[in-house]
Amino acid sequence: DYEVGESVTVMDGPFATLPATISEVNAEQQKLKVLVSIFGRETPVELTFGQVSKI
């Protein structure tokens, strides 16, 4: 299970290999909103559970 505030690594898509912090969890739809730090700015990205891995 994923929790808000948890650190994960993006495994898929254009942000693969980047660390991210979970900002929202939708367990019903198996989706997460995460904040990816790009060029010093936090960018919100919506991903599925399968696109991230716990650190």
Rank of each mutant, 00 (worst) to 15 (best):
D12T: 14
S37A: 09
Q29R: 10
I22R: 00
V52W: 02
G5D: 04
R41I: 14
E24L: 07
F49R: 03
E42S: 09
I38R: 08
V34F: 01
A16C: 08
F39P: 05
G5M: 03
D12W: 14
L32P: 00
N26P: 01
K54W: 05
P44A: 15
T17Q: 11
V8Y: 02
M11D: 05
V10I: 15
K31W: 11
F49N: 03
L18G: 03
F39L: 11
T43K: 06
E42N: 09
E46W: 15
E3R: 14
L47F: 07
S53P: 01
I22A: 02
T43M: 12
N26Q: 08
S53R: 13
D1C: 13
G50V: 09
V36H: 01
K31A: 06
S37D: 08
V36D: 00
P44Y: 15
E6N: 07
E46F: 09
L35N: 08
A20D: 00
P14E: 09
G50D: 13
F49L: 04
I38G: 07
L47V: 10
N26W: 14
S37V: 15
F49C: 03
G50T: 12
E42F: 10
E46D: 08
V4N: 04
F39Y: 10
I38N: 07
E28Y: 10
T17H: 13
T17V: 04
V10P: 02
V10D: 00
P19R: 15
P19W: 12
S7P: 08
Q51I: 03
A16K: 12
Y2T: 00
V52L: 03
T17N: 14
V8I: 09
E42T: 10
K31L: 13
A27D: 08
V36E: 00
F15T: 02
A27R: 14
T43E: 13
F49V: 04
L47T: 03
G40R: 03
V4C: 06
S37N: 12
L32M: 08
Q30K: 13
M11T: 12
V36P: 02
S23P: 01
V8R: 01
K33H: 08
T9A: 06
V25H: 02
F15C: 06
K33D: 03
E3M: 13
G5S: 03
L35R: 08
S23L: 15
F39S: 10
D1I: 14
A27E: 11
E28G: 10
R41H: 11
E3L: 12
M11S: 08
D1Y: 15
V4R: 06
T43L: 13
P14F: 07
V25P: 01
K54S: 06
T21C: 09
E28D: 11
L35F: 09
K33W: 14
V34W: 01
Q51P: 01
K31D: 02
L18Q: 08
G40A: 04
V4I: 11
Q29W: 08
V45N: 02
T9G: 03
I55A: 10
N26Y: 14
M11E: 07
E3K: 14
G13H: 04
E46K: 04
G13Q: 02
T9D: 04
Y2P: 03
E28H: 10
V25T: 04
V52E: 00
V45H: 05
M11C: 10
S53K: 13
V8T: 01
F15H: 06
P44W: 15
V45L: 12
Y2Q: 01
I38C: 10
P14K: 07
T21R: 12
V4K: 06
V52T: 03
T21G: 02
T21V: 14
F49A: 03
G40M: 04
E28W: 08
I22Y: 01
K31Y: 09
A16T: 07
V10A: 02
E42A: 09
T9S: 06
P44C: 15
E24A: 10
D12A: 13
Y2W: 13
V8A: 02
A16D: 04
K54N: 05
Y2K: 01
I38M: 09
Q29K: 10
T21F: 08
N26K: 07
D12R: 09
G13I: 02
S53A: 13
L32Q: 00
Y2S: 01
E3F: 13
L47D: 00
R41C: 12
G40I: 03
P19M: 15
P19E: 12
P19D: 08
V52M: 02
E42H: 08
G50S: 14
L32Y: 05
K33L: 14
T43H: 13
K31R: 12
S23G: 06
F49W: 08
F39H: 11
V36S: 01
S23K: 12
I22P: 00
L47M: 07
T21D: 03
P44H: 14
T48C: 10
G13Y: 02
G13M: 02
L47A: 03
K31V: 11
V45T: 07
N26S: 07
P44M: 15
T21S: 06
M11F: 05
G50M: 12
T21A: 05
K54D: 03
V45W: 07
N26V: 07
V8H: 01
Y2F: 14
G13K: 02
L18C: 11
S37K: 14
L32V: 09
L35P: 00
S23I: 15
V25C: 05
P44D: 10
D1E: 13
P14W: 07
T48E: 10
V10Q: 01
K31T: 14
V45I: 13
V4S: 04
T43R: 07
P19C: 14
S53Q: 13
S7H: 14
F15D: 01
E28T: 10
G5P: 01
G50F: 11
K33R: 11
Q51S: 07
Y2D: 01
L47S: 01
I55L: 12
E24C: 09
D12V: 15
S37E: 09
T43A: 08
V4H: 04
V8Q: 01
N26F: 13
D1W: 14
T43P: 03
S7Y: 11
S23W: 14
Q30M: 11
E24Y: 11
D1A: 13
I22D: 00
E3N: 11
S7W: 15
T43V: 15
T21K: 12
V52C: 04
V36Q: 01
S37Y: 13
M11N: 10
P19K: 15
G13A: 02
T17G: 15
E6Q: 12
D1S: 14
P44T: 15
L32K: 00
S23T: 15
L18H: 10
P19Q: 15
A20H: 02
E24W: 13
Q51K: 04
V25E: 01
E6K: 05
V52N: 00
R41Y: 10
P14G: 04
M11I: 15
Q51F: 04
Y2L: 05
V10L: 05
S37P: 05
G40N: 07
Q30E: 08
G13R: 02
I55V: 12
V36L: 10
V4E: 06
Q29D: 09
V34D: 00
F39E: 11
P19F: 14
V36Y: 02
V52A: 04
L35M: 12
V25Q: 02
V8S: 00
V45Q: 05
G50N: 12
I38H: 09
V4L: 07
F15N: 03
A27Q: 12
Q30S: 09
E24R: 06
F15E: 01
T48M: 11
I55C: 10
V25G: 00
S7I: 15
F49M: 06
K31F: 08
Q30T: 06
V25S: 03
T43S: 08
R41V: 15
S23V: 15
T17P: 07
L18A: 06
M11Y: 05
E28R: 10
V52Q: 00
G5C: 06
F15K: 01
V10E: 01
D12K: 09
E3H: 14
I38L: 10
E6H: 07
T21Q: 08
T9R: 13
E28Q: 11
Q29M: 11
